[in-house]
């Protein structure tokens, strides 16, 4: 479960995130939506403990990220928009390295299963420099899934992927939420895709919450309009900036 209470992040005088509060329960997928510069990435980075929040409290699977960061981080995975991999390690070596960091005892079996699920088993001994962007994204997913996190954060996970890879990634996310009860937050500009994947939506504008609820609740509040239409109405002049 992800619990965020009064999260605020300041960069000097600039407020990037302003008093955000919400909860994502196990099995829920929250779509974090907002125009460029609305504070989506900053929010995700604060939630994952990459940067400290200026104010507020973040709890990951019951662990306060500021007070007990190791336990909180053991329960989460963060997927950046650009997969961060080491050029001189193979796919298998990435999994071995990750396993040691997260102390995954049965990493060998889990790793191979993950690679098979991601159609990467035959690429296990290749350097990541030999992989396409989509394949690198799969390696990042395999590393992130290896320790079976209870919470996942995705920052623009589908950027640069081909339609087939988008479909597979989407199915994987849904499976993680439905089958394993993982709490997931996805930040993306692909609104039609979020409509397919997310159970909840949080729309932010200039760091503050402008709408939050299940997809049905938000649609009902706006006469059944599509998410794109709702986004344009709520974000108004900020959209497209």
């Amino acid at each position: 479960m992800i619990a965020c209470d009064g999260l605020t992040k300041l960069y000097g005088d600039f407020t990037a995130v302003n008093d955000l509060s919400f909860v994502v329960h196990p099995g829920e997928v929250l779509g974090l939506v907002g125009p460029n510069g609305a504070g989506k990435t900053t929010t995700l980075r604060c939630l994952a403990g990459i940067i400290p929040a200026t104010k507020g409290r973040v709890s990951i699977d019951g662990h306060n990220i500021a007070e007990d960061p190791l336990a909180a981080k053991q329960a989460l995975s963060f997927f950046a928009d650009e997969p961060r991999l080491f050029d001189y390690l193979t796919v298998r070596q990435h999994l071995e390295f990750t396993a040691r960091l997260y102390q995954v005892a049965d990493a060998k079996e889990r790793g191979m299963k993950l690679l098979e699920d991601l159609d990467m088993a035959d690429k296990a001994d290749l350097l990541t420099t030999e992989l396409s962007r989509g394949m690198k994204q799969k390696v990042a997913l395999a590393c992130g899934f290896l320790h079976q996190p209870r919470v996942m954060f995705f920052d623009e996970p589908l950027t640069g992927l081909d339609p087939l890879a988008i479909r597979r990634t989407k199915d994987l996310l849904v499976a993680q939420a439905r089958e394993r009860g993982v709490a997931i937050i996805i930040s993306s500009h692909l609104l039609h895709l979020l409509e397919e994947v997310c159970s909840h939506v949080l729309i932010v504008k200039r760091g503050a919450k402008v709408a939050h609820g299940t997809l049905a609740e938000i649609r009902n509040a706006h006469n059944g309009a599509a998410l794109e239409e709702i986004f344009v109405r709520l974000v108004g002049e900020d959209a497209g900036k």
């Binding site: 990459i50 989460l76 963060f78 961060r84 960091l101």
Partner: peptide
């Protein structure tokens, strides 16, 4: 690569 390192559960 600090943004990745910061997500690892290690002292």
């Amino acid at each position: 690569g600090m943004d990745l390192l910061k997500t690892y559960p290690l002292p």
